[in-house]
Design a protein around this nucleic acid. Structure first.
Lengths: 209, 209
DNA sequence: CTGCTGACTAAGCGCTTGCTCAGCATGGTG
DNA sequence: CACCATGCTGAGCAAGCGCTTAGTCAGCAG
C-alpha cells in the first residue's frame, strides 16, 4: 500500500536484533494506516487487529490501549521529524543551503510518510495528556530550529524577512500540509516536490536564487 | 468564544427574513465548534444538543442526521471560500495585485473562521458520499481559480514559476493550514497575517515587490 | 371553549465500542 | 515426561453510541 513509510521510524524493528515481536510491528503499521485514513475515533480496535491478522484481544498483549498505539506513532513520528530538521539546520553549509536542504527533506518526508504525517499532525487532539506534553515539546523544538536558521540567514544578509516567526510558520506549514493533500497518484515524486518547494521557500525568504 | 465566524456563512440567518428557526442556527454553531475541536466522530449528538441548550431528540427535528449537519457546514464553508476566491481572482487589477488580495483574504478567512475552516478541511473523510462529491467539485474550482491567476501572471511576465500546479498548491496550502495552527492567542490579527502572507506569496511567485 | 400544529423532552431501543478473561496450542527447559 | 511462559482466541461485559418513539405543552384559528 504505502511504499516504505513506517519502517524508517522504528529502525530497531526493521534492523534485526529487536526484542519486540513482529506482531507488534504489524499492529503498528495497521494502526498508522487506519488512523491516517479514517481518523483515530473512527478506527476500531477490531479494524486494527483484523488488518494485522489477529483477534481484537491480541492487541492488548502488545499495547496497553488504543490510545497507547497512537501515542507511540505520534512520538516516534515527531522524533524522526526533529532529527531530520536538526541534521539539516545544523549542517556546515551557509544558511541558504541549509534551508534548501531542510525544506527538501522536510517536504519529501511528509510526502513519503504521509500516513504517519497525517496521524502526527491531525490526531494530536486524541492524544492522552501526558503523551501530548511530550509531543508538544518536540513540536516547539522543530519550530525553534527553523526560526533559528532563518535568523542566521537574516544575520548573514541572505534572507530578508520582516517577521521571523511568521516566516518560520509559513515554512513548516508548507511542509506539514503536504501530508494532507499528497497521494500516491500525485504527478511529482516526493523528491521532486521537495526540490520545487525548496526553491519556492528560498524566494519567499528573500534569498537571491 | 469564536468572534464572528459562522454568521457570515449563513447570511440569510443573521439577516432577518429567514424561515429557519433560531434553534437550527444554534445547533449549527454548536456543531461547528464541537467538530472543529474534537472531530466529527468524537462528537456525540448529545454534545451538540446540550451545547445548543436542547435535548438530543430536538436535533432530529431540524436535521436529518449528525452527518447532515456536517454536510451543511462543509458545503456552506466551501461555497463561501469559493466566492471569496472568485471575487479576488476576477478583479480588474493586474495579476500581482489580484493575487495579493486573494492571499490576504483567503488567509484572513482561515484565521477568522478557523473553526469552520477546520471542519471544512479536515473532516472531509466523514462526509457522506453525495455531499463529498459536491464539496470536491467546489475544491477543484478553487484550485483552478488560483492556477488561472498564476498563469495570467506568468503570461504578463510578472510571475516566474516553473510548475504552475505546484505553485498553486503551495498558495492554497499556506492559507488552509492557517486554520490548523491559528488560535485566538496568536500575536497577529487575521488581517495582519493576511498582509504578511500576501507579501511572502508574491515573492514566492517571483514577483518583484 | 375546541381542535390542531410544531417545537420539544424523557425514556429507551438496538447496536457497537474498548477492553477483559478463561482457556488453548506451542515450544523451550528440567 | 512434567512444567511453564508466551502468544493468541472465542466469548462476552459494561458503557456509550445514533436515532426513535410516545407524549407534553404553548400558541393560535375558529
Amino acid at each position: 500500500m504505502t511504499s516504505t513509510p513506517i519502517a524508517d521510524l522504528w529502525p530497531t524493528l526493521s534492523g534485526g536484533a529487536d526484542t519486540r515481536p513482529e506482531a507488534a510491528y504489524r499492529l503498528l503499521q495497521a494502526a498508522v494506516e487506519s488512523f491516517a485514513e479514517r481518523g483515530f475515533h473512527a478506527t476500531t480496535t477490531r479494524d486494527i487487529a483484523t488488518a494485522a491478522g489477529m483477534s481484537p484481544a491480541a492487541l492488548y498483549i502488545h499495547y496497553q490501549s488504543k490510545a497507547a498505539l497512537l501515542a507511540e506513532i505520534s512520538q516516534a513520528g515527531h522524533a524522526a521529524t526533529l532529527t531530520l530538521v536538526r541534521a539539516a539546520a545544523g549542517g556546515p553549509e551557509e544558511p541558504a543551503e541549509r534551508m534548501r536542504r531542510l525544506v527538501e527533506e522536510f517536504t519529501a518526508w511528509h510526502a513519503r510518510a504521509r500516513m504517519v504525517g497525517r496521524v502526527v499532525n491531525y490526531e494530536l487532539h486524541a492524544l492522552p495528556e501526558d503523551a501530548y506534553a511530550v509531543v508538544a515539546a518536540l513540536r516547539l523544538d522543530i519550530e525553534r530550529e527553523v526560526s533559528a536558521l532563518i535568523e542566521a540567514g537574516v544575520a548573514a544578509g541572505v534572507f530578508q524577512v520582516s517577521e521571523v516567526r511568521t516566516a518560520a510558520r509559513a515554512v513548516t506549514s508548507l511542509g506539514i500540509d503536504v501530508s494532507r493533500w499528497y497521494t500516491e497518484r500525485s504527478s511529482e515524486t516526493p523528491e521532486e516536490l521537495g526540490r520545487r518547494y525548496g526553491e519556492l521557500v528560498l524566494r519567499m525568504l528573500g534569498a537571491r536564487v
